[in-house]
Design a protein around this nucleic acid. Structure first.
Lengths: 341, 341
DNA sequence: CCAAGATTTGCACACGGTTGCAACAGACTA
DNA sequence: TAGTCTGTTGCAACCGTGTGCAAATCTTGG
């Protein structure tokens, strides 16, 4: 007893205690390997006594699977990202994998380092939630046999799969929704981040308006968050003729906008201004906001991601993923459509 | 060119291309190892061509360090947890480690499995943000040389460090703060989760009130979230004599309470009811709420954790960590103290 | 040009697992 | 009892890296 081995206990130690060979120990912990019930029992007992746990790092050496999935993400406290992270780690665990989350600032070098980390740790796959990695580095990952999945990166790089949300289509829908509510002076609240998905949303909204001969200002007052939304409201309402219909390319922006419109300018929502968001974060449903918005089906998205991660080779699934369609969630921040035109 | 090795490229391959021995490659990527400038250059070139990245899994075999830190957490989308996760991954990366996040449901078996995972992956340390792991399993981690850090688990188990927040002390402060604001009928909004820190908060508040001869109802209307806070308000105000001062053991609970009090019962905050929260999540600062609360200094907490993780052995730091003191953040959800007593 | 010292290099083993292969034991049949 | 078949077991090689040690090379001084 009390075999105080410095560090972790290995199969060797277990084997000695159980009076069997090291292979027997290995086989006991390998599914489908041939071990007699008697040996298995001896091994399991010894393992329990010593507190033995198979070394997945070493196991990953022989196999080509590490069961590690890299998750590259920035701005984790953001409700949408946090929700994604939650769903991903949960579903990854369900299939016996584990998420290694790498927190980036979003800039090129930071993302590059993150990607290198996933290579260093021989991750089976990488999910890129934010930042646009260098194409050559992605190529390196793919060449090394990693599955790479980009979320909402518009770049059509050969190799990785790109899970896209119907940003443009949904933005158009937001436009028509506000128009049907009777809004005349529209504006879109966006951010300085300029990520592909955000740009797609604000420009598609503006384009839809242009088709009707309307010009729509796009306000980018800061990073993608509550504060930038509030600042946008201040900019738009500080002179007269402010909008009566607003599309926030992100719920966070929309909520910030709503708060500033109400508390700094005394506007009523939706009587004075209708507001539509994007994402359906939890806070959008809180009673103070009751934001009408478009829900991203996070659970289904992650299911798709996990499928891509586990299914056949990259050759087969590159670019074939159909875009995800957000669904409108009606709450109270948009004027109900008048009964008769 | 185009040496399409199936799977990852190894040092062996690089060595052949560079015309040196495998050790030379290894030494090129090891700090402080002796390599001539000429060899180093040849190796680096070959490595770049092949897209070689050192295998940290294999490296971890020889050393006793894997540079992996397990983070066991539940309810990631919760603003407080997400913020913690953000700060942790960030600070861990800054010291060359990487976080492996394991998402639990919080129940015993789930946490046990999570802990086993960290053992399997030979994590250098484990940070337990939620759930109370079995003492014997923790012992196993410690015996295997892992650093184990419990956040806000009151259990005084020998071995792991316990980073505690001054829950009781702060709850007393919340009580006195509400009393000084002139509140007469107090209530505390808690949750059915019954975690050590939450229990410490609600019971300490009630105890402080008891010292003044006041009886304070503790409402537990569901899990620790917005919905349970709102439900608590419905329960408290559905009959007359509802509270004029409320302590939410969590900001999320306080915000839910505030929304329901306002929108379902037409109460004004703080004129009709003063509300104090705990955590200072981002939403507490949003204009619709302006919640007075106690901030947990997340950044400093994580600094402390990282220090514990990297500093000397467990023997020295067990239980010696002084409790973290949250600081009051004054906003607008509590009546200002009347000028004269 | 030689010896001594400093630097670089390669061999071989270790780390902790998995696995093909051959040896072995036991059960059954003729 | 010998022969065959099935199921277990241990040996040894391998996965990709780090590193002590001795050999080899370069540098320097006389």
């Amino acid at each position: 007893m009390d075999i105080k081995t410095k560090g972790f206990v290995s199969a060797e130690t277990v084997a000695r205690l159980a009076g069997v060979s090291r292979s027997a120990v290995s086989r006991t912990f390998t599914d489908g390997a041939s071990v007699s019930e008697a040996t298995r029992k001896k091994v399991l007992e010894a393992a329990a006594v010593l507190g033995y746990h198979v070394n997945h790092l070493a196991r990953g050496l022989s196999h080509d699977r590490s069961n590690i999935i890299g998750i590259i993400v920035s701005e984790i406290p953001t409700p949408y990202q946090a929700r994604m992270l939650d769903e991903m780690t949960r579903q990854l665990q369900a299939i016996g994998k584990v998420g290694m989350v790498i927190n980036t600032t979003g800039d090129a070098e930071s993302v590059a380092n993150a990607l290198r980390q996933t290579l260093n740790f021989r991750a089976d796959g990488v999910i890129v939630l934010s930042g646009t990695p260098d194409a050559s580095l992605i190529a390196s990952c793919v060449a090394n046999g990693q599955r790479v999945i980009l979320i909402n990166r518009s770049d059509h790089i050969e190799g990785p799969a790109n899970l896209a949300v119907e940003n443009a289509e949904t933005a158009r829908e937001a436009y028509h929704l506000l128009r049907r509510a009777g809004c005349q002076r529209l504006a879109v609240v966006s951010s300085t981040a300029g990520t592909p998905s955000l740009s797609a949303r604000d420009s598609a909204f503006a384009a839809a308006a242009a088709e009707d001969g309307l010009s729509v200002p796009i306000i980018r007052a800061g990073a993608t968050g509550y504060a930038a939304g509030a600042e946008a409201a201040r900019q738009l309402y500080s002179r007269s003729g402010g909008p009566d219909g607003v599309f926030g390319v992100t719920d966070l922006l929309a909520l910030g906008f709503m708060d500033a419109a109400r508390h700094s300018f005394g506007l009523r929502v939706p009587q004075d201004v209708s507001i539509v968001g994007f994402d359906d974060i939890e806070q959008a449903g809180w009673e103070s906001y009751a934001l009408t918005t478009f829900r991203q089906p996070v659970e289904e998205m992650v299911q798709l991601i996990v499928q891509l991660l586990t299914q056949a080779g990259p050759d087969e699934w590159a670019h074939v993923v159909p875009p995800i369609k957000p669904v409108p969630i009606w709450r109270k921040s948009v004027l109900p459509r008048p009964n008769a035109g």
